[in-house]
Every structure is written in structure tokens, then in C-alpha cells.
Design a protein around this nucleic acid. Structure first.
Lengths: 246, 246
DNA sequence: CAGTGGTCTAGACCACATA
DNA sequence: ATGTGGTCTAGACCACTGT
């Protein structure tokens, strides 16, 4: 016989769901400086008592805190505050078309290369091909309100997207097309500062000494590499932004 | 009377917990190209039937997928596959000391400025002070195996860390110290490519035309801004890396 | 209204860690 | 042996959405 049910819509002392109340309460303790890095937190059963909720509920609150990197839970020994050095933030890398139109601006793309060619050695290696195997190669410049924002130099594994070269890239970005063709993927990327190559400088309309932000991204579908892209942004026009908060 | 309890350690057809089995099964469907962007996924009750688990369990699996940005759940209408463009990745920005020693290398810091001074206008604004208020200002270069890797130009709100100037920054990084003093915080940052300023070039021992990766980070403690840091890395030596996979 | 997701509880079994 | 986290289930109430 249920003694007392706390329902989801019980706006008890706040509009928050119980698991959120527990999470926020612990978070507040953190901000107050309880739980210094490495210290031990109350056990789940203690929290059950303190907040008058079930163990599943405190479990969920703790799982949320764990997901944001604030605490570490060790089976058999307890829950501990982490060294906050490792806090991770999320950095979104979006399709350039979405990004530009999302700002309410006009996106335009101009295609400067779109062909099959023998794979250079380093490209072949990263795409899991042999040197000289055919790869698709496109070079496209993306404009935001007619200002060149990104030079996209991309190699594609033909086995993954046989129809790639036939796409009209002034109407659909390679990223968008590839997402349709290769429905799911993982990716690794590096971000660095570099000077533009001769062609990149010309296509972007910038000087060869203007620093650029270069994102190199390798996209894979399970085991098979699909595409290797080098995205070059004029440093003066582009910044990546992010934030972390627990 | 419980008919049949599935226990946590039931390695039913795999070593995975039920919620993980459900998650992986749905993930596999995704990779196979079911659930194209925007399409509707099976309802929770359908999944309960299909996998023979309780609703809480499919709920957790779905919450995991939601957290990784794969699906969107709308109360009252259903669960939908998202446009995978928005997949977020985690980018870790770590304490430079940890990062260097983590690679098994030697870290050394040289302090080039460490004093209180009147806040320049833009710094004051971002730290929530008035122009001319006293701020702490340090300029420190961090070396990895005696190669200059980072120039750290930092302003600190004195109210948050009164003892800041007394710290021996050859032995402890400002980041580390501030984490101890101001136990919890959130941060926003931008990443851009830029040319080094005259002082930065000199301190890093690079030319003024060598592109640099510049991370500008504002750290806050609840409402109060704590510190504003400009971290400059020689572009040839430093890359940020990341990966995303669901 | 029926269907969907959002959440809660109580009790349970397990694996692991520590003593 | 005890305590900790990890997880599951069954049934329940709610809010929201769409017909």
C-alpha cells in the first residue's frame, strides 16, 4: 500500500522535479565550496534520507552530475568530487549552411574543383586507400553575405558515395549530401592556426600572411573512412565559441 | 508476485546491461540508416514490447541517446531522429601543467609580469569592474621541454583572489591556484587564429607573422567574473583535438 | 479523448571494495 | 560482513499533443 506518492507535478518548494531538486541542491553545495576536489560525497542512502526521495531518484541526480564531469562514482567505494581541471565542454561543429542561415544570413557556395583524381599518399593513407587509387576531390568556397568565410578542400572515398561528383554543390553542401548517403558516422578533428596555402589565399581573397583557423576533419563510417576535409577560415572573420558549466 | 526478474548481471546474449542493449540496438538501427533525420522512432511502449524490458529501462536508453544529440523527445508527440548536423563533441581544455606532464614532458614557467594595475576599459568591462579599478595582471610563458608553448596573459579580479600576486607561479599555474581559491566556476571561451602581439612574439620566440591559436577564456563564479585569460599558442606547435561519436 | 513522453516509488539482486 | 554504487521491474500519476 503506497504510503505517500510524490508525483511528477508536485511543485514542492520549487517548480523542479525531485531529481532536479537533488541535483541543484548538490550543485549549490559545490558552489559553496563543500566537496573540494577528491573529497567524498554523501552516499546514496544518505541522500535518500536527506531529500526524502527514492534511491532511483538520487541515482539519476548523481548520474547527471557525473555526466557533466563534476563527480566520479566508484562502485563499492563511493562518490567523489573530481578535479575540475578535466571539465569538458561541448564544441559544436555545424554544417556551414546551417550555421550561416542560422544567423539569418545568406549562404552561397562556389565550386572550384570537382573531379576524380589519383589519391596523394597522405590522403590515401588516411582514407584507407592505396596511393594512386581514385578519390573524389572538391574545392568549394562558402560565402556569408558574399564574404568568403570558408574554403572547403575535401577528399571523398568513392566507395562510400559513388554519386558524389554528380551533386550540385551550389545547392547542397557536401556535408549535407554525405550525411544522407552515409547515414551515420564518427569523426575526429584537429583545430590549428596556419597560414593559407596559395590557392586558399586566392580563393578566400586574403593575403598569404593572414592567419587562418584550420579544421581538419576525418569522418568515418564504422570501420571505413569516408571523407577527409580541410576547412580553412580567415582568422579575422571566424571564431569558435564554447562554454562549460556544470 | 514477481514473475521473472532480470538482474543486473544477466549477461543475456551479451555482457551489456539491458538499458545498454536497448541503446546499442537502436544505435545499430541508426547506423543501418533506419530513422533518417526527422523521422519518428518507435514509442516507448513499442520498445518495451520489442525488448522485453520495463519502461524505465527504455527511458534510460532513450535519455542516453538524447544526451548524445541523436534523438529529440517531445512530450505528447513522440521521439524523433535529429538532424545529425548538430552533433556536439567534447573539447577538453586542461590545465597546461597537467597537459604537459600528462605527455610525460617537463613543464617550466617563466613569469614576466605579476602586479596590480588599473584595469583597461575592455578588461574592466568583462570583469564587471570600472575602468581604472585595480586588477591583478600576470604574463607567464609555459615551456614544454624548454620550448615555449603558451603565453598566458591573465587579468584577475582582486576581490575573488586577494592572495593571487603572492603565489609563486613557477611552482603552480594560475589556473590551478584559482581553482583552489574559487572552488567552482563556469567559463566561456573563443578560439581564433591571430598574429601574435609584439610582446607575445618576443616571449614565445617566434616571428610576428607566425600564426597563433588564441584561446580567450572568461571564468566566472556564479555572477562574479573571476579572471580573463588570453592564451596564445604558436600555430606550428599546437593543435586542439577532438572527436565525436555517439 | 487516447497516446506519448516525464517522472516517481518500493523493493530487489548484483558486483565490487574495504576491512 | 558490511556498505557502496549499478541496475531492474511493476505500477502509477502527470503534462502535453493531436484528433
Amino acid at each position: 500500500m503506497p504510503s505517500r506518492r510524490a508525483t511528477a507535478a508536485d511543485p514542492e518548494s520549487s517548480g523542479l522535479a525531485p531529481y532536479a531538486r537533488v541535483r541543484e541542491a548538490l550543485l549549490a553545495d559545490f558552489r559553496r565550496g563543500r566537496y573540494p576536489p577528491g573529497s567524498r560525497m554523501p552516499s546514496e542512502s544518505e541522500l535518500v534520507e536527506r531529500f526524502g526521495v527514492s534511491r532511483m531518484t538520487v541515482g539519476r541526480a548523481l548520474r547527471d552530475l557525473q555526466a557533466s564531469g563534476l563527480i566520479e562514482r566508484r562502485q563499492g567505494s563511493g562518490t567523489f568530487a573530481t578535479q575540475p581541471h578535466k571539465v569538458a565542454s561541448t564544441l559544436r561543429i555545424r554544417d556551414i549552411h546551417e550555421e550561416i542561415t542560422g544567423r539569418g544570413h545568406r549562404h552561397r557556395a562556389s565550386v572550384h574543383l570537382c573531379r576524380a583524381e589519383p589519391a596523394p599518399r597522405d590522403v590515401a593513407a588516411r582514407l584507407g586507400l592505396s596511393k594512386g587509387d581514385a578519390v573524389f576531390h572538391t574545392v568549394i568556397v562558402h560565402f556569408e553575405n558574399d564574404v568568403a568565410l570558408q574554403c572547403e578542400d575535401r577528399y571523398v572515398n568513392p566507395a562510400c558515395a559513388p554519386g558524389y561528383l554528380a551533386v550540385d554543390f551550389t545547392r547542397m553542401t557536401p556535408t549535407h549530401y554525405l550525411l544522407d548517403v552515409a547515414p551515420f558516422w564518427k569523426a575526429g578533428y584537429t583545430i590549428e592556426a596556419a597560414l593559407p596555402g596559395a590557392r586558399e589565399a586566392r580563393l578566400l581573397g586574403i593575403g598569404r600572411t593572414e592567419p587562418c583557423l584550420v579544421v581538419t576533419r576525418l569522418t568515418e563510417n564504422r570501420q571505413t573512412p569516408i571523407t577527409l576535409a580541410r576547412l580553412t577560415y580567415p582568422g579575422l572573420l571566424y571564431q569558435l565559441e564554447g562554454a562549460f558549466e556544470p
